[in-house]
Amino acid sequence: MSERKILIVDDDYNICELIELYLKKEGYIVMSTHNGLDAIEIFREETPDLVVLDIMLPKMDGWDVCRELKRISNVPIIMLTAKGDTFDKVLGLKLGADDYMVKPFEPRELVARVEAVLRRTNTPGLVTRQMILPHLLIDMDLYVVKINDHTFSLPPKEMELLYFLVKNQNRVFSREQLIENIWGFDFDGDNRTIDVHIKRLREKLEPLKNKYEIKTVWGVGYKFEVK
């Protein structure tokens, strides 16, 4: 019997109760909520091992919830929706969802998918967040960076930006994408903020310039390049 925790996020109370019944029968610890903002708060408090997430939610929709959860965690997410459009499925997967089910669905199939995703990811909710490369370590739990043998701290947003770029090394992101992933969907500042943080990070990474570079891709954005 499993003792792993599952968070269900759906504004339909009946669907939550049905999923909860089937998952509890398999030994899972189940929590549920019915809006996006509460989902993020519960996630931070309870650190579930997997999230079953509806798209159409009050206060914050499933896309934004998925984006925020993937920003702070590697938790696996199964998206639920009444829509069967290919666009919705592709968008969910691009945001980091691990699987996708269209309503109405068979509860036993959802349980099987939960089990399959957990086996595949084998990832607890808030896992240790480290990126380890030769001569470079970024530890988001301790909020420190180690370059060669020198360990130091960075301001929070610089840490998060560096971690995000290194985690997605060699992939190009626009300023808007970086702001969305680091500052969040409600950021109302100047997107040139990214340029200032990139400049500071380049200065910190100067000792490793022959190995790594935060490269400007003109007309597009930035990427962390491993040479």
Rank of each mutant, 00 (worst) to 15 (best):
V172W: 00
D85Q: 13
V144D: 07
L50N: 00
I147H: 02
M131N: 11
I138F: 06
T193F: 12
G189N: 01
K89C: 06
A82W: 01
Y143C: 14
P155A: 11
K227G: 06
K223T: 10
T81H: 01
N74D: 14
M31A: 10
M1D: 13
G221Q: 05
K83W: 00
V127T: 13
I29D: 04
Y13W: 09
L21R: 08
V52G: 00
F164P: 06
I72E: 04
N170W: 07
K89F: 03
Q177R: 14
Y222R: 04
Q130R: 15
G96W: 00
G96P: 05
G221C: 12
E3P: 05
E106W: 01
I198M: 11
K223G: 04
L7V: 13
V127H: 09
L201Q: 04
I72M: 04
G96I: 07
L50P: 02
G84R: 00
F105A: 05
G219D: 06
I132T: 13
M79L: 11
L136V: 07
V220D: 06
I198D: 08
V226F: 01
A97P: 02
S73L: 05
L95Y: 10
K24H: 03
A112K: 07
W218M: 08
R129Q: 15
I198E: 09
P104W: 11
D188I: 14
R108E: 14
L133H: 07
P155M: 08
K146D: 03
R119E: 14
E3H: 15
N74Y: 12
V144Q: 12
E109G: 01
V145T: 12
A112S: 13
P156M: 07
I182Y: 00
E26D: 12
E106R: 11
M79G: 00
D64L: 14
V117R: 02
I77P: 03
P207R: 04
R120Y: 12
V226P: 00
